[in-house]
Amino acid sequence: MKGNKPEIKTCHQPKYQVGIDLGGTKTEVILLTNKGKELFRERVATPVDTKNNYTSVLETIHTLVSQALSVVSPTDDYTIGVGIPGTIDKKTGVVQNANTTWLAGHYFKMDLEKKIGKEIYMDNDANCFTLAEAIGGAAKGYKIVFGIIMGTGCGGGLCINGILHSGNHGIAGEWGHFSIDPEGEKCFCGNIGCIDTKLTGTGMARSYKKQMNQDLSAEKIVKLARKNDKECRQIFDQFLDDFGKSVGGLISILDPDAIVLGGGLSNIPELYTIGIERVRKYAYHKEVRTPILKNFLGDSAGVFGAAWLGCNT
């Protein structure tokens, strides 16, 4: 990488790649050439609280794709990739495990293909993040890359030699739904004590409320912990210890060449100092050398990864 720009992936397939990053609050589109040049980018609010969120999102994505393609010739070939907060069941084609619950149970890929009149490449947003960071971001040059997103939820993805690995059920990398605390909180997935209930901003805030019976954001908990507030320091230390257990266990099972962190909580500096010490404590190796890297592409990773889905076959 040079300067503050990613090394953009060259795609040997069609001339253009359209990427859509569908999030809970924003939806972003990008148009790239197969040489990696950015031609168009737009970000809009994801429809919420409408009478039919699902139909509104289909229309929003259709509009964004049309806007992006308006800057190129209609005769040029292109791919469209979409990153979503969920996975596609390989057997049925429906969305499953979606944090954005109104997506769950829908044939989103097929409905979007029907709406746009074009084949769609679709994958989990954490997979798109991992793909982007593996081929054009912080983990470029590493063979086996595990990407972790820690924000309001906790997801993951696995990229091997620049190709996403989705697994038999399409859930490879769903590290956030591994239970590490049988006495913990119930996760939205139905299990108890998932990593998703621990290594998230909502998880940290929930721990504080349970202990102090009042609301406090994760950001404020971390700030007060640094000022030696007793309760906040205890909760933050538990967060770092849970990080060590979770990532240490991941390394013991997968032993990736690099791990890259994304999401809002990836900006916590202590993850790369105390957090790494805890990882070394819990991993099944005396001298863990696995690089744990902060993302390079920020919140642009998802849309780049979505665009590159069409080159990832």
Results as ranks from 00 to 15, higher is better:
3 G>S: 14
10 T>I: 15
18 V>D: 09
19 G>A: 04
27 T>F: 00
29 V>K: 00
30 I>M: 09
33 T>C: 11
33 T>Q: 08
35 K>S: 12
39 L>S: 04
39 L>G: 04
40 F>Q: 02
40 F>P: 06
41 R>H: 10
44 V>Q: 10
45 A>E: 09
52 N>K: 08
53 N>I: 15
53 N>Q: 15
55 T>M: 05
57 V>D: 05
58 L>V: 09
59 E>S: 13
60 T>W: 08
60 T>Q: 09
61 I>M: 14
62 H>G: 12
62 H>M: 10
62 H>T: 10
65 V>D: 06
65 V>P: 08
66 S>V: 12
67 Q>P: 11
68 A>C: 04
69 L>M: 04
70 S>Q: 13
72 V>W: 07
81 G>P: 06
82 V>L: 05
82 V>A: 07
88 I>A: 06
89 D>F: 14
94 V>K: 06
96 Q>I: 14
98 A>H: 06
101 T>V: 15
102 W>N: 05
103 L>Q: 04
104 A>G: 14
106 H>R: 03
111 D>L: 05
113 E>T: 13
114 K>S: 09
115 K>P: 12
115 K>H: 14
115 K>Y: 14
115 K>A: 14
117 G>S: 03
118 K>F: 13
121 Y>K: 09
123 D>T: 07
124 N>Q: 02
125 D>C: 01
126 A>V: 06
129 F>N: 01
130 T>S: 07
132 A>T: 05
132 A>E: 02
136 G>Q: 08
142 Y>P: 05
145 V>C: 00
145 V>N: 00
148 I>T: 05
149 I>E: 00
154 C>E: 00
156 G>E: 09
157 G>E: 03
160 I>D: 08
161 N>R: 15
166 S>K: 05
166 S>A: 04
167 G>N: 07
167 G>W: 11
174 E>V: 11
174 E>D: 11
177 H>E: 13
178 F>K: 09
178 F>Y: 14
187 C>V: 09
189 C>S: 01
189 C>T: 01
190 G>E: 06
192 I>H: 04
197 T>V: 09
198 K>T: 11
200 T>A: 02
200 T>M: 01
205 A>T: 09
210 K>G: 14
213 N>A: 13
215 D>I: 14
215 D>N: 13
216 L>Y: 04
216 L>P: 05
216 L>K: 09
216 L>H: 03
217 S>I: 02
220 K>F: 12
222 V>Y: 12
223 K>N: 13
224 L>V: 05
225 A>Q: 12
226 R>N: 07
226 R>A: 06
226 R>M: 07
232 C>V: 02
235 I>T: 04
235 I>H: 10
236 F>H: 01
237 D>N: 10
240 L>E: 03
247 V>S: 03
247 V>K: 04
249 G>I: 11
249 G>S: 07
262 G>A: 10
266 S>K: 06
267 N>H: 14
267 N>Y: 12
271 L>K: 02
274 I>D: 11
278 R>G: 05
283 A>D: 15
286 K>D: 10
286 K>P: 10
290 T>R: 10
292 I>F: 14
302 G>T: 00
304 F>H: 08
307 A>C: 03
310 G>D: 13
311 C>I: 10
311 C>R: 07
311 C>Q: 09
